[in-house]
């Protein structure tokens, strides 16, 4: 999307219009040079970030800011010792189960409601309310109901995920191209065929947008519930580290959380790419993150 100007061979008038603001009288070498320079800059920033981290930990002491090296060491020993892995897998289990429990009904419901516009309209304000409501504020309630174990976290994750995915699926169904439906009906498709071959594939990108948005919320929700009350999980580790003034421990747990989010994102992306091979390589959709 950015920098597309002038990279195409100008075969037509439109191309020429697009290439206002292309690089000055284009030399290829200069463009490659720009790319190398920008990668170099990025590396420089990365080094600077680590330097600042190290400097902070030297200056303020590892008591306040765990050192980068210490964090890496603790991360490795934590993983090798299995302790960190067991906490991480606990959090991951909460997130995944909650994601499925909330996400699957959220995908199915709009399809069931597709032929029932009146029911959809009746539900609408309640769904909008549920979408807007601060679900994390329900954490104490779920802890009250389901105890401090895994169930309360799953419930919180599920309800958070549900509304996000519900609305993205709904917008996918609403964005349906009626011409495609008519075309299918003309060639003899019945209602079921239309749902399966037209509506669903068309909605898949929207559903995945919902998944991608919901993913960090699922992990975040699990961690928040653990912060409030738990005896296992990464949120518990973070809380524990903070209470013992063990910033390295906090960093390790945070890093592990970040890694889980990253893995989750990658998983969603890979899955999406497999399902959406038919889609033209379009510009990346920008969405607002966590």
């Amino acid at each position: 999307m950015p920098g597309c100007a002038g990279t195409e061979t100008p075969t037509g008038e439109k191309m020429a219009t697009q290439s206002e603001f292309s690089a000055p009288p284009g030399e290829n070498s200069s463009r490659v040079g720009t790319l190398i320079r920008s990668r170099g800059d990025q590396l420089l920033v990365l080094i600077a970030l680590f330097a600042i981290w190290q400097a902070c930990s030297l200056w303020l002491g590892t008591y306040w800011v765990g050192s980068p090296w210490g964090t890496v060491v603790r991360l490795t020993t934590g993983v090798l010792g299995g302790e960190l892995l067991s906490h991480a897998s606990f959090t991951l289990a909460e997130a995944v189960i909650g994601f499925l429990l909330g996400g699957i009904p959220a995908v199915i419901l709009p399809f069931l409601l597709r032929r029932l516009p009146i029911v959809t309209a009746i539900l609408d304000p309640f769904m909008v309310g549920g979408y807007g409501a601060p679900k994390l504020a329900l954490a104490p309630l779920f802890i009250l109901w389901f105890g401090i174990g895994i169930e309360s976290k799953i419930a919180l994750v599920a309800i958070t995920v549900f509304f996000i995915v519900y609305f993205s699926t709904l917008s996918g169904i609403r964005a349906l191209d009626t011409k495609l439906v008519q075309m299918a009906q003309i060639v003899g498709a019945d209602e079921k065929d239309v749902a399966r071959h037209i509506v669903f594939p068309g909605a898949v990108p929207y559903i995945f947008t919902g998944f991608r948005i919901a993913m960090p919320y699922a992990i975040g929700g699990a961690v928040v519930a653990e912060l409030i009350s738990a005896n296992r999980g990464l949120g518990y580790l973070i809380q524990l580290g903070a209470m013992n003034f063990d910033t390295t421990g906090v960093f390790v747990a945070l890093l592990a959380t970040g890694i889980i989010v990253f893995i989750g994102n990658t998983a969603v992306n890979v899955f999406e790419r497999r399902l959406l091979r038919w889609r033209p390589p379009s510009d990346a959709k920008n969405q607002s993150g966590t």
């Binding site: 002038g6 990279t7 195409e8 061979t9 100008p10 020429a16 290439s19 292309s22 690089a23 009288p25 284009g26 030399e27 290829n28 463009r31 490659v32």
Partner: peptide
């Protein structure tokens, strides 16, 4: 002239 796609060296005079 516009730079052509990377990899080809001839630039195109419009």
């Amino acid at each position: 002239r516009f730079a052509s796609r990377a990899g080809r060296d001839s630039s195109l005079w419009v």
